[in-house]
Design a protein around this nucleic acid. Structure first.
Length: 325
DNA sequence: ACCTGTCAAGTCTGG
DNA sequence: CCAGACTTGACAGGT
């Protein structure tokens, strides 16, 4: 059945260009850590930076909510050097329990949708034992951070399928195998995204379906990497993967940086890169959450919302929410 | 104050 | 087998 209207919410990633001095990703190099002779002091410094990052995240969340933006992706580098051996066995997530609970409260109070996107170094389908081990640990840490915020499986950690290793079929099967070996409580927090070089939207969708998790459709990656599949064919099934979820389907959008460098993200998102897609998408879902992946972060979001709102088929609703007809 | 190089972690390519 | 590209934001060291 055709749905004519679609409600759109926008989100942005980690940093804000509008909030002064609010980096949620301040860090420490291994060298700097090791240059502090007293290890307890060094660990305390890591903890202090992490507290700052989380406090900055809270400010960004307030800023977002205040502007009607109810969708946000956390930085994966809230805790400096997390997972690195130099930190020893200190449990930073536990040590920051109250800080995390604090931002979780802001999320819930404002009915926001948030999540993580662990870095490309989290590769479940790797042939390397050591990489698999650290990848699983990394996933567990991301889930634990969400849990520390009091956020359930509605809130996701979004990952890619991984490398190809000269045999995409085997690599895909290895992903499925590895995924199903994860604790179901971790599995429930995961969603899968198509890649710009390796696994296409169709391939990712097939894997997502077979392991029973929702799929995030990255429109830009799809343009970089596809086998000619039509969005009209892909998108309804992607939407279907979200039907059991609390939140509506989410997609990622960005514009190419330049003609010579298509894969990199531009500062802003061009209308032409998203409007035609929205008219297709609205036939299959009543609601869509769109993550803006642009260098200018929330500024790109604000600009895109303004540009869209100027179109005759778009109506600006309460907050940063749009309705497209 | 600014600029360039380096760092974290993986995959992948080329030699 | 090893070096370098790729990616991203921030540190680190130089002018």
């Amino acid at each position: 059945m055709m749905v004519i209207k679609m409600i759109i919410r926008f989100g942005f990633v980690a940093m804000s260009t509008h909030v002064y001095n609010s980096s949620p990703s301040k860090t420490m190099t291994v060298k700097a850590f090791q240059s502090i002779p007293d290890k307890r002091l060094a660990l305390r410094r890591v903890l202090r930076i992490a507290k700052e990052n989380i406090a900055h995240t809270k400010r960004i969340l307030y800023h977002a909510a205040h502007n009607g933006i109810l969708f946000y992706r956390f930085s994966s580098r809230l805790i400096p050097l997390l997972g690195h051996e130099v930190l020893g066995d200190k449990d930073f997530i536990r040590a920051l329990k109250e800080d995390f609970a604090d931002i979780g409260k802001v999320v819930l109070d404002n009915k926001m949708r948030v999540g993580f996107h662990p870095d490309h170094f989290t590769v479940l389908n790797t042939p390397r034992k050591d990489v698999l081990r650290s990848s699983v640990k990394d996933l567990i840490r991301h889930v634990r951070m969400l849990q520390s915020m009091g956020l359930n499986q509605a809130y996701k950690c979004n990952i890619h399928i991984g490398g190809v290793y000269n045999d995409k079929k085997a690599a895909g099967e290895r992903f499925v195998e590895r995924f199903l070996r994860l604790d179901p409580r971790i599995q429930a927090y995961i969603c899968l995204e198509n890649d710009d070089k390796t696994f296409t939207a169709q391939e990712t969708l097939d894997i997502a379906k077979s392991v029973g998790v929702p799929m995030v459709f990255d429109l830009h990656h799809h343009r970089c990497n596809n086998n000619g599949e039509a969005i009209e064919d892909l998108f309804p099934i992607i939407v279907e993967s979200w039907t059991k979820e609390v939140f509506p389907p989410k997609i990622h959008v960005s514009s190419p940086k330049s003609e010579s460098d298509i894969r990199s993200h531009a500062d802003y998102v061009a209308l032409d890169d998203i409007v035609p897609f929205l008219h297709v998408a609205k036939q299959y879902t009543k609601q869509l959450d769109i993550m803006i992946e642009a260098k200018q972060k929330d500024d790109a979001l604000f600009r895109l919302v303004e540009d869209l709102a100027a179109l005759p088929e778009v109506k600006k609703m309460d907050g940063g929410i749009l309705e497209i007809t």
